[in-house]
């Protein structure tokens, strides 16, 4: 296996459809292993659709279709024998709105995925819960109230709880779809710091409307527009000297 070309995501001519409407017009890009890649672009540009293709979440919506190639570490995610559930375990996702399971305690939220996978060993569950909450930088705030409902936490804590829940099943990738857009600046900063720490061990793809956030947390930035990948480069380059005028117009706020 050639480690350079096999590492991370390799996407080729990826097209996504809603019914007959083509939402992504043939995206090709390589997303590097254990780095943070930000996807930016105006509403409706296909950035959420794109990340949802990366863990086969797009097809969860009825009447949808995906064509093209999407490899993770050389593994064809759309191969005939591939179980989408396994894809989603290895490639986790956190959404814009924190969505802890409403009837569950903090603890049960974190271990829900493990239990679903059939893990029953109480010690293993407790260990994973603690580790995941530690990694999500939430442990100190919740360790004395693990039995309380997940929904009793603040918005920022709930979002980190969702990240802990995603981490508990030991994924290799975290897809974050506007993870801080519903959070206040302090909670958002905590999540950003978390992203920064997590890239030591995970490959992260973050969709964000907040350009400063993309600039702060990511190594590479991709600019999407109307279902196309317009420009994709090192973040520092995109934000100081983009090649494409459309990118420049968007990041300098002169779009439209």
């Amino acid at each position: 296996m050639n480690s350079d070309t096999q590492k991370g995501f390799r996407v080729e001519d990826l097209k996504a459809y809603f019914g007959k409407v083509e939402a992504l017009h043939g995206i090709s890009m390589a997303i590097p292993f254990q780095q943070v890649t930000a996807i930016i672009g105006p509403s409706g540009c296909g950035k959420s659709t794109f990340v949802r293709c990366l863990n086969r979440m797009h097809e969860v919506t009825p009447e949808t279709k995906v064509t093209g190639v999407c490899l993770w570490q050389g593994w064809d995610l759309y191969g005939p024998a591939v179980d989408p559930v396994e894809v989603r375990r290895r490639i986790g996702m956190v959404f814009q709105k924190a969505n802890p399971f409403p009837m569950m305690s903090i603890y049960d939220n974190v271990v829900a995925g493990l239990k679903l996978m059939g893990v029953r060993n109480k010690q293993k569950l407790a260990q994973t819960a603690e580790q995941s909450l530690l990694r999500a930088a939430l442990w100190d705030e919740v360790k004395d109230k693990l039995g309380q409902p997940g929904t009793s936490l603040s918005g920022g804590q709930q979002q980190r709880l969702c990240i802990a829940r995603a981490l508990a099943v030991e994924p290799e990738v975290l897809l974050l779809d506007e993870p801080t857009s519903a959070l206040d600046p302090i909670a958002a900063r905590k999540v950003e710091e978390l992203i920064y720490d997590l890239k030591q061990s995970y490959t992260i793809v973050i969709v964000t409307h907040n350009m400063q956030q993309a600039a702060r947390v990511s190594d590479r930035t991709a600019f999407f527009l109307l279902g196309e990948l317009i420009e994709y480069d090192k973040t520092a380059l995109i934000f100081t000297n983009p090649r494409e005028k459309r990118t420049e117009d968007y990041i300098t706020g002169r779009f439209g």
Binding site: M211, Q212, A215, F239, T240, N241, T247, E248, T252
Partner: peptide, 9 residues
């Protein structure tokens, strides 16, 4: 304004 690109330069 936290400018970027040409504006920042």
């Amino acid at each position: 304004y936290q400018p970027a690109a040409r504006d920042l330069r």
